[in-house]
């Protein structure tokens, strides 16, 4: 009993000491929550976009930016995609746990579209606009264009920005980064270190020029688009995986001096021509019942799921893999119309 008591004394002393050290460093770390864009609303409210900044005390922002030691984590552009909420929380929590290892600026923006988050809506409620089609925005434009322009202005000076999405409410995705072919050369080497399962390089499209990530990449700030999990839900394992990846990237950039976990090697899909992926679209309207989980390897002819008609108790369609590959997307939301996407398979993995 006495020995145990002694051990406890030692470990309690150690704990107190480490808490003291933590307190010391935390006191030397700046935590700021600031409004980076705001506008007046009609009735007794202001719309505010907030930034949570962590950086070592006494550091000079311009100097750290010049050294490439500023990272931004952005999420909530689509209000019903919540996977990034956990990442933002976890990132802040882990940094505060080991504040002495912070040697750059970490800017966390958990809610780019606060109306959307509040209304469980992908777009901007009241306007029915997709916020990710508004960039680069316009300082002299309407409320939404103004907010978009102000957001982009605040990203200036970052070495890297990660825009975290969660697919949508219909599809579940393995953690992945999507890169426009126009920015492949710059972004692929960074994306490979982000601890995701897949990096999907896709073809350029004019419509995508109005996205947040395109605007940033176009303006010279490296921006990665992360898609993982599913809308309206949080998958903690994916959040932890990506948070590990963010720490790994922070270490690369000289923002973090602490230990980081080894990152996994992602599958790279060079799909600029759009030939690498099988798209499984429903041939009929009905209720989709999945039989394979996302992340499964599937063989040609293997059943992915069925589309049924509850009004008659019949199978309307058996959804089969058109070829061998990796099922990296699967439909989560059961109701399908003819044409609804039920899965994606990366060929030949």
């Amino acid at each position: 009993m006495a020995a145990q008591f002694e051990n406890f004394e030692i470990s309690e002393k150690k704990r107190q000491r480490s808490l003291k050290i933590l307190k010391y460093w935390r006191e030397r770390m700046i935590e700021q929550i600031e409004t980076i864009a705001e506008t007046e609303l009609p009735v007794d409210e202001r719309l505010k976009i907030s930034r949570y900044r962590l950086m070592p005390d006494g550091s000079n922002v311009e100097e750290l930016e010049r050294q490439g030691r500023r990272i931004g984590i952005v999420t909530g552009i689509h209000g019903d995609e919540l996977e990034g909420q956990y990442v933002c929380y976890e990132l802040g929590r882990r940094i505060k746990e080991e504040a002495s290892a912070l040697c750059g600026i970490v800017d966390i923006y958990p809610a780019m579209n606060p109306f959307g988050i509040d209304n469980i809506t992908r777009g901007i409620p009241a306007f029915d606009l997709d916020m990710n089609r508004l960039f680069p925005g316009n300082r002299n434009g309407d409320m939404n264009e103004y907010i978009a322009a102000e957001i982009l202005k605040d990203m200036k000076g970052m070495a890297l920005c990660m825009d975290i999405h969660a697919s949508n409410i219909f599809l579940t995705e393995v953690p992945q980064i999507r890169i426009n072919e126009l920015h492949k050369e710059r972004l692929l080497p960074i994306a490979e270190k982000a601890n995701v399962d897949l990096v999907w390089v896709h073809g350029a499209s004019t419509v995508l020029e109005a996205t947040f990530a395109y605007s940033l990449n176009d303006s010279g700030v490296d921006a990665l688009v992360v898609e993982m999990g599913v809308g309206m839900r949080i998958t903690k394992s994916y959040g932890n995986q990506l948070t590990d990846g963010i720490f790994s990237l922070m270490k690369e950039l000289g923002i973090w001096s602490g230990k980081v976990p080894e990152v996994r090697k992602p599958v790279i899909s060079n799909d600029e021509k759009g030939e690498d992926v099988y798209y499984l679209n429903a041939r009929t309207s009905g209720i989709f019942l999945k039989e394979k989980e996302h992340g499964s390897m599937v063989a040609k002819g293997e059943r992915i799921g069925i589309i049924v008609n509850p009004l008659g108790g019949e199978i309307l369609e058996e959804v089969e893999a058109p070829g061998d590959g990796w099922l990296f997307t699967i439909r989560e939301y059961p109701v399908v119309d003819e044409g609804s996407l039920v899965g994606r398979i990366l060929k030949g993995v």
């Binding site: 506008t39 609303l41 009609p42 009241a126 309407d142 409320m143």
Partner: peptide, 8 residues
């Protein structure tokens, strides 16, 4: 009936 700030 109501306008947001900056609305054209």
């Amino acid at each position: 009936a109501m306008a947001y700030q900056n609305t054209a």
